[in-house]
């Protein structure tokens, strides 16, 4: 399974949006776009998806545009006055974006509620949540995690974008590694650790865990690089915030075109 070209094309679209808008949040979108491809390009119609790290909205908008959920005309309005696509997702605009996120720690409770509802109704499908490793600082993540374990929600699959950086430092330095596999395993999750930029590895892990009806909620800890694909952004906290200069944009496009075989 080779999706390298698609991974590169969507990166170019993300950079294009940020270039058009002169906006930040580039690094966190490049960090998780491959995870979104793995979840959303290969999903069952009964599955639901919540992007908990709402600041990666350009990655969300780009993949939603790719799968036909957001029209091209709307993409052209990104970040502009009167848009449906501001820096964080907004409510009630696109069916495929069921919840407006942007404040951290909301996705796991929402996804857990969806998984519980599916169990109660006896309906199929997986409740997917994509969250950042920094978000595992939030108490709500642990509240939801314990509920999911006790209620045997094996239809909940939580992807953690583990790039090791959060708002103002490294996750390790700030609260310790709250996204450590052994911590989540200790409360009862079934955990897999994968390369968060390998579509085939993530799809394989996802399919394996989603098929495992053992009563355990699932977590896929995806090891990622913040800013993946643009060397001067990679593993640098400031690329959570900074916009690109013209030169940086030109260089980034060249690099991605070369590295992703476009």
């Amino acid at each position: 399974m080779d999706h390298k070209k698609l991974q590169g094309q969507l990166r170019l679209k993300i950079l294009g949006l940020h270039h058009m808008a002169g906006s930040g949040h580039i690094g966190c979108s490049l960090s998780c776009i491959d995870m979104m491809i793995s979840i959303l390009k290969f999903r069952d119609p009964a599955d639901t998806f919540i992007l908990s790290k709402g600041h990666a909205a350009t990655a969300l908008y780009t993949i939603m545009n790719e799968i036909g959920e957001i029209p091209d005309e709307a993409m052209d309005t990104f970040y502009k006055n009167g848009t449906t696509l501001p820096a964080h997702p907004v409510p009630l605009k696109y069916k495929a974006i069921p919840f407006a996120t942007g404040s951290l720690g909301h996705g796991m409770p929402l996804g857990t509620g969806i998984a519980k509802a599916k169990k109660l109704k006896g309906t199929d499908g997986i409740s997917y949540v994509l969250m950042s490793d920094g978000e595992t600082n939030e108490g709500t993540s642990w509240e939801a995690g314990h509920f999911a374990v006790t209620n045997k929600l094996d239809n909940l699959v939580v992807f953690v974008d583990k790039n090791g950086l959060q708002g103002f430092g490294s996750t390790q330095d700030i609260l310790g590694d709250t996204a450590a596999a052994n911590k989540w395993e200790a409360i009862g999750f079934e955990v897999a650790e994968v390369d968060g930029h390998s579509i085939s590895a993530m799809v394989e892990a996802k399919e394996k865990l989603a098929a495992s009806k053992n009563g355990k909620p699932k977590m896929i800890i995806a090891h990622t690089v913040k800013g993946k694909g643009v060397p001067h952004m990679e593993n640098k906290m400031e690329w959570h915030y900074l916009p690109m200069t013209e030169d940086m944009y030109t260089d980034a496009i060249k690099k991605i075109n070369t590295d992703y075989g476009i």
Binding site: F99, P109, L110, K116, A117, E143, F147
Partner: peptide, 20 residues
Amino acid sequence: AGVAEQNMVGMAAGMASQGY
């Protein structure tokens, strides 16, 4: 939901999105 009110309300919204 246990002594976890924030999760209780977030989950409630998730369940409501599924028709409850």
